[in-house]
């Protein structure tokens, strides 16, 4: 009996993977490589039409932006905001997700739908009216305003992720721990935490990343002088468009996020259901 090296299914599988890789290369890897090149273009030797590669490479753009723009302040603002936003979001999402994942009550599905609304409304639309509301409420701190805005718009992600985690907690393990005399804290550590941990870390990282990348709320609430990395980036794209400078800021914005995303991916993958739930 002869055996085919590749079955028909295998061929389709490889074609699909190939397509995915190609799309990834064209739309993500290539622009990313271009961004790296553009950020290294020397200010006194512009990269113009006939040249395939920049004539002179240097780090002068990086140094220039760092020293002349508000980028250091923007970086500080972005990361401080993201840290606060992810902490507050998690604090609010955990009890909500507990209710959605572990309790039955009337109006639960409606409530679940409601928590997804921020996903549907465009950031700019809500931000415009949100900034007016903040002033009416007497919240004049831009930082606090943006924290509130980000928290509201990112809560759906954390709630969704954590609700799934909470539904994976096994009631019989909770019961068994209590039955054997465990305190509420031990019940949490034994029956809840191992299942929740990947979801907690993943939602923390995802909210952190999305907060750093968020533009609409930061721009409108922070206007005119509160800067974050995306608002700086925007300032390079509009009126005085300088592609090499935009490339530098883009990289500063994106690279840490890519690293964080890879970590989140790892954490979600480590949530091996067999280890966590004991069901193979």
């Amino acid at each position: 009996m002869t055996k085919l090296l590749f079955s028909r299914n295998d061929v389709y599988r490889y074609l699909t993977v190939l397509l995915a890789v190609l799309v990834f290369l064209i739309f993500l890897a290539l622009p990313f490589a271009m961004a790296v090149l553009w950020s290294l273009v020397d200010p006194s030797h512009p990269w113009a039409y006939p040249a395939v590669l920049p004539p002179v490479l240097s780090l002068r753009r990086w140094a220039e932006i760092w020293t002349t723009s508000a980028l250091p302040q923007a970086l500080y603002n972005s990361y401080a905001l993201a840290a606060c936003v992810s902490a507050v979001t998690l604090l609010l999402a955990v009890p909500t997700a507990y209710a959605f994942g572990r309790m039955e009550f009337t109006g639960k599905s409606t409530a679940q739908m409601m928590t997804l609304i921020p996903l549907i409304i465009p950031g700019f639309v809500s931000a415009i009216f949100f900034s007016a509301l903040l002033i009416q409420l007497g919240v004049y701190s831009r930082f606090a305003g943006i924290v509130i805005g980000h928290t509201v718009s990112l809560l759906p992600y954390a709630i969704r992720l954590l609700t799934v985690s909470f539904t994976m907690v096994r009631q019989d393990l909770v019961d068994a721990a209590r039955d054997l005399g465990a305190s509420p804290l031990t019940v949490f550590r034994t029956a809840y935490l191992p299942v929740l941990k990947p979801g907690l870390l993943a939602s923390l990282i995802i909210v952190f990343i999305l907060s750093i990348e968020e533009f609409a709320i930061s721009y409108i609430v922070g206007a005119p002088d509160f800067v974050t990395v995306p608002t700086i980036l925007y300032s390079y794209l509009g009126y005085n468009f300088i592609r090499p400078n935009a490339a530098v800021v883009s990289l500063i914005l994106v690279v840490p996020n890519v690293v964080l995303m890879l970590i989140a991916e790892r954490l979600l993958k480590s949530a091996d259901p067999a280890v966590v739930t004991g069901k193979g």
Partner: peptide
């Protein structure tokens, strides 16, 4: 279901 703690 035995309810054994899978990580212990």
């Amino acid at each position: 279901s035995y309810a054994l703690f899978p990580h212990l």
